[in-house]
Amino acid sequence: MADLQGPSQTITLKVMRLARPKFAPFTSLCVDPEDDVGRIIQQTVQRKTIDEGSQWPIGDFILAPQQFENIYLGETFTFYVSCINEGNDQVDEVTVKVDLQTNSQKQPLPCKLDGLKLVAGESQGQVVSHEVKELGQHILVCSVTYKTSSGSSQYFRKFFKFPVTKPIDVRTKFYNAEDNLSNDVFLEAQIENTSGGMMMLERVVLEPSDFYDSQAITPSPSAVQLRPKDVRQFLFCLTPKNHGISSPKEVTNIGKLDMQWRTAMGERGRLQTSPLQRIAPGYGDTRLSVERVPATVRVRQTFEVMLRVHNCCDRSLDLMLSFDTVRQPGIVYCCTSGKSLGQIPPNTSIDFGLELLPVTLGFQSLSGIRIHDVFNKRTHEYDDIAQVFVN
Rank of each mutant, 00 (worst) to 15 (best):
V309R: 02
S104Q: 06
D169G: 11
S143K: 10
C30L: 11
A295V: 11
V205L: 14
D179I: 01
E291G: 00
D35L: 03
S28Q: 07
T172D: 08
V297C: 03
L307Q: 01
V299K: 14
D35E: 08
Q101F: 06
Y155R: 09
I385E: 00
P294W: 05
L361P: 03
D318V: 08
F162A: 10
G342C: 08
G6S: 13
V81H: 05
T286C: 10
Y146K: 03
L226S: 08
S195Q: 07
T296D: 06
I84Q: 14
Q364T: 05
G269M: 13
I369L: 06
V98A: 04
T360N: 12
P275I: 08
S289P: 00
V359P: 08
G121S: 13
F159S: 04
S143W: 00
E178N: 05
G342H: 07
Q387K: 05
N253R: 09
P221A: 15
P33Q: 05
I217G: 08
R287P: 00
H372P: 00
G244I: 09
H138T: 03
L13M: 07
V224S: 15
R203P: 14
F61S: 12
T172N: 10
M199R: 10
L235P: 07
S247E: 02
Y283K: 01
Q124G: 05
L341E: 02
L100G: 05
F79N: 03
V45P: 01
L18A: 13
S247Y: 03
E188A: 11
R157H: 07
D114T: 09
P219L: 12
I279G: 01
G284Y: 04
N88V: 14
D92K: 08
T49W: 06
S349D: 06
E75T: 14
S153T: 04
G282D: 04
M265D: 14
Q124T: 14
T165Q: 12
P294R: 02
L271N: 09
T27N: 10
G121E: 13
T194P: 02
T348Q: 10
Y72M: 11
V45N: 02
G74L: 10
G6P: 07
L113R: 03
F79P: 04
G282I: 03
M259P: 09
T360V: 15
S340H: 02
I41C: 04
C313R: 07
K147E: 09
Y382I: 01
P294T: 04
F156D: 03
K147T: 06
K14Y: 15
Q233G: 12
G330C: 05
I279F: 02
L201F: 15
L18V: 15
V293K: 03
V290R: 00
V81A: 10
D324H: 01
E52R: 11
T252I: 03
S82I: 12
C312Y: 03
Q137G: 10
C30P: 02
Y146Q: 04
Q328D: 02
H310T: 07
S150D: 13
C237F: 02
D383Q: 02
Q67P: 04
A24D: 05
V309K: 03
S214G: 11
